[in-house]
């Protein structure tokens, strides 16, 4: 039996909104420690790795490991019915073919209950494992979202060049070029506005703008995003949850 109660429905709403446009369905792997998902988009360029640790939940129990195959579009429709501030409880029996979703209004005496039909999903898992990182950038997630949107008007590719004291975002397209430079900054009064760059090796990588547009749909999940870059390797874009994370692994583009 799985039962997880979110203090606010808004958290699961944001997670599903951040995932549903790149992955249509995925397995939610539930253990006593929490819920995890790994899913790859159809083009096998972008991988999503989600971990919702049990501490994220107001109440959580999972007696036996279970895998729940979920259509994210369908889940999004159902959880869209609840108010952001509602308690949201998801539950499933060990051999369930449906996921129970219950919203409890915190003010009114109102409980809404839905069932989502589960899917049998046979998906490949990729061994992403821990890896060395050449450069790590942490910046406000809203700033990163704006950089991606602004650069996308110029080109299908965004080049990220990291040196010791700056990160350069560059797009070169038919209509012209764009450059945005950010430098480390410590903001004591507003720590969420701080920018950090740590570097072992300079980085020059290009990523597809269309995939970055999918990644920045996670912006509302966290005030900061951490970007981990390694030469000739996928970039990792991490949005922290209250306890856990939503990570995107994006394959880079290479010159011929």
């Amino acid at each position: 039996m799985l039962e997880g109660k979110f203090e606010e429905a808004s958290l699961l709403k944001k997670i599903v909104e951040a995932m549903k446009d790149c992955v249509s369905s995925c397995n939610f792997n539930c253990t006593e420690n929490g819920i995890s998902v790994q899913a790859v988009d159809n083009s096998r360029v972008l991988l999503i790795s989600l971990l919702i640790e049990k501490d994220t939940f107001e109440e959580y129990r999972c007696d036996r490991n279970i895998t729940l195959g979920v259509g994210l579009g369908s889940l999004s429709k159902i959880i869209g019915n609840g108010a952001n501030s509602d308690y949201l409880t998801i539950s499933a029996d060990d051999d369930a073919d449906k996921l129970n979703i219950i919203f409890e209004d915190k003010v009114k005496d109102k409980i809404s209950e839905y069932n989502l039909k589960l899917l049998d999903i046979d998906a490949d898992l990729l061994d992403v494992g821990p890896m060395d990182t050449d450069a790590t950038i942490t910046l406000p997630s809203a700033d990163f979202a704006k950089i991606c949107k602004d650069m996308k008007v110029l080109s299908e590719s965004l080049q990220i060049i990291v040196t010791k004291d700056s990160a350069l975002f560059q797009s070169v397209g038919d209509i012209g070029t764009g450059n945005i430079v950010i430098r480390p900054k410590t903001d004591i009064d507003h720590p969420e506005e701080s920018v950090t760059i740590s570097l072992d090796k300079p980085i020059d990588l290009s990523f597809g703008s269309k995939y970055l547009s999918d990644i920045i749909k996670a912006t509302s999940l966290s005030q900061k995003v951490t970007i981990k870059l390694t030469d000739q390797s996928p970039g990792v874009f991490e949005y922290k949850l209250p306890s856990g994370y939503l990570r995107f692994y994006l394959a880079p583009k290479f010159d011929e």
Partner: peptide
């Protein structure tokens, strides 16, 4: 134009 790689080139399928 740079070529888009896919993740299979970097990670093994478990």
């Amino acid at each position: 134009t740079p070529i888009q790689n896919d993740l299979n080139e970097f990670y093994n399928i478990i």
